[in-house]
Design a protein around this nucleic acid. Structure first.
Lengths: 239, 239
DNA sequence: AGACTATTCAAACACTCGTTTGAAACACAC
DNA sequence: GTGTGTTTCAAACGAGTGTTTGAATAGTCT
């Protein structure tokens, strides 16, 4: 067994973050792409190391495991995602619930569906929801749960204080589901809905549509809730 | 190479459908479960044959290939799905567009999210949309395209004659996305939204919610379309 | 019964995967 | 330079995969 220096320089330079050998970071970057593209199980260490110009054994040496590499990638992706496109930036000028909802939709489209930048963090999260790995616990507490909290808070503000928990989660699922559909069903969308699918303009259009569609759904749900919780006394009147 | 009798009894009894040896049908049934549960790639023919009490070589003998088995399963699932829960039954008493939409949502929930019966056809279709196999072409022309046509027809009826194609497909995606979310994100939904998730009552509730939510979204979109295509002439008025 | 085909079976083959190995190459203090 | 610890490398290992093989069994018609 190798000496296993999984935390290199741990006892020196307590300042600098991981610091990362060249190959270590190369493997991390390549692994991010491959994991995001193929998923944990279908990704092969050989492809990752080939893209990183590294030897197969590099994974075992630097990360111990395939699972260890995956965990490191998640950490790395989380770090650069929150650094490069911080969540708060999307909500900077969002004051009303509707503005917050639109910011939320835009952010999720940017992080999950858009693909240009090295932003595989959203993609990995989306994958983790569909086919969880052993890293799910960590992903949930670090990323998914806070995001879901933010979403349900917005929905709650829309639906008012009388909304039940079931209504809030159902509405949240409706919004998230619309967005994730463009990621999950991408192959079939590209195939059946011709036109230059997944261009930036197209994604912008979809994001606006999902926001509009959801706002209408939320307003209708709010109306039903209000009518239920404060029934009109002149019950004979039309709607 | 074996004699390869892929169409057994082809020259005899031109009447009876495949007739199917015991083991052939057993393998077909077991393969349906395993493919639906694990997906094409992660399903192993060893597990399939074990569940079917058949020898490993049975797949090669009866279906030629793992891909051949998968294609046969799709055909088989399509046949029993359209026999057991025929689509038209859902639309029997649906006359208005809204009733048709509700029937559509209910049907998709029943076929894809519900899990009781041997109804892996919907599950396999949903899988094929996310990670297509070589059978995608066939699945699209046989199942997905007709279903999508039905959906867009309903949406078109909702949105009126002035709706653009982009608006129709986006609205269709919003509806389908909401439904499929309950299938794809099932692990995370079960985990985060406690309570007895995926009970029959829960699924009914979700189906009703998705229909309500979508109807509201469609009405709002319709209003925007009508306002755009027949602009009010007293343009000075407040909206 | 006999001849012939269809079907089943245990075993093996070829391949890919993640992981390990032991030696070589490197870095750097002394 | 020598010595020590870190990092890379080609090669192999062991487990799991789909597929094939060739013999054994079951079935069916004459």
């Amino acid at each position: 067994m190798p000496a296993g220096p999984f935390q290199p320089f741990a006892h020196l330079h307590p300042v600098a973050p991981p610091v990362a050998t060249d190959t270590r970071e190369n493997v991390l970057l390549a692994a991010g792409e491959v994991f995001a593209h193929r998923g944990f199980k279908d990704a092969t260490i050989r492809e990752i190391c080939e893209r990183a110009d590294a030897n197969i054994a590099a994974v075992s040496y630097h990360f111990g495991d395939k699972a260890g590499l995956y965990a490191a990638v998640l950490e790395y992706a989380y770090a650069i995602a929150s650094q490069r496109a911080p969540i708060e930036a999307f909500f900077a000028h969002a004051n009303t619930p509707e503005q917050k909802l639109r910011a939320m939709v835009e952010m999720m489209f940017t992080r999950i569906v858009d693909q240009g930048r090295p932003s595989w963090h959203g993609v990995l999260m989306a994958r983790e929801m569909v086919e969880p790995t052993s890293a799910l616990d960590h992903v949930v507490t670090q990323s998914i749960a806070p995001m879901w909290k933010r979403m349900t808070d917005i929905v709650h503000a829309f639906l008012g204080p009388h909304a039940s928990e079931a209504e809030i989660t159902a509405a949240g699922n409706s919004i998230v589901g619309q967005i994730l559909h463009y990621k999950h069903a991408r192959p079939i969308i590209v195939r059946m809905q011709h036109g230059q699918a997944y261009s930036s303009e197209q994604i912008d259009y979809w994001a606006r549509h999902v926001a509009d569609f959801s706002v209408a759904g939320l307003h209708a749900l709010r109306a039903a809730i209000d009518q239920r919780s404060t029934p009109t006394h002149d019950s004979g009147a039309f709607s």
